Amino acid sequence: MIARILQPARTAMQSGQAKDDWVLLFDPREAQRIDPLMGWTGSGDMRRQVRLSFDSAEAAIAYAEKHGLAYQVETPKTRKHIVRPGGYGGNFAYNRRGAWTH
């Protein structure tokens, strides 16, 4: 069983750049199956529910090595910061030259 160490993507409600937590997830042992009565998907694999959070990738790697887990590190895709001069804050600047149009 391989554990994945990754930095999860932000949700649609998060626009900041300060999210630095790393997560250790386990790959599933068995496939999910559909319950014939309710139609829900489920599995007998309890490790699928385990989600361990760490402050850094090095801490997650140290945990995996300490417990003898095979692991795979997925590096995150970094975004460049978008800073627009006179962005939203420019609407409220004291030296605004244009007329207020809202």
Rank of each mutant, 00 (worst) to 15 (best):
M38C: 08
V50P: 02
W22Y: 10
I2R: 04
A9S: 11
T101C: 12
R79T: 12
Y94F: 09
A9T: 11
R51W: 13
R33P: 01
G16K: 10
P36S: 07
R84K: 06
D45C: 14
R4W: 06
K80T: 08
V23L: 15
L6W: 15
T41C: 12
Q7N: 10
R96G: 03
T75Y: 11
E58W: 07
L24R: 05
A60T: 05
R33D: 09
W100R: 14
R96C: 03
T101A: 15
F92N: 08
T78P: 02
T41N: 13
I82S: 04
K66C: 06
H67M: 08
D35L: 04
S43H: 13
H67D: 09
Y63S: 00
G98D: 14
H102E: 08
R33H: 08
Y71C: 03
D21P: 00
M13I: 09
D20M: 07
G44K: 03
Q49G: 10
S53Y: 14
Y63D: 00
P36V: 09
A64K: 05
T75F: 14
D20A: 12
E58F: 05
Q72C: 07
R79A: 13
L52Q: 13
L37S: 12
P76R: 05
G16P: 00
L69I: 04
N95D: 15
H102P: 07
S56M: 14
R48V: 12
F54I: 13
R51S: 14
L69R: 02
A18Y: 05
Y63A: 02
A62E: 15
A60G: 01
G39S: 00
M1I: 03
Q14G: 01
G42Q: 09
A12S: 08
E74M: 04
R10Q: 07
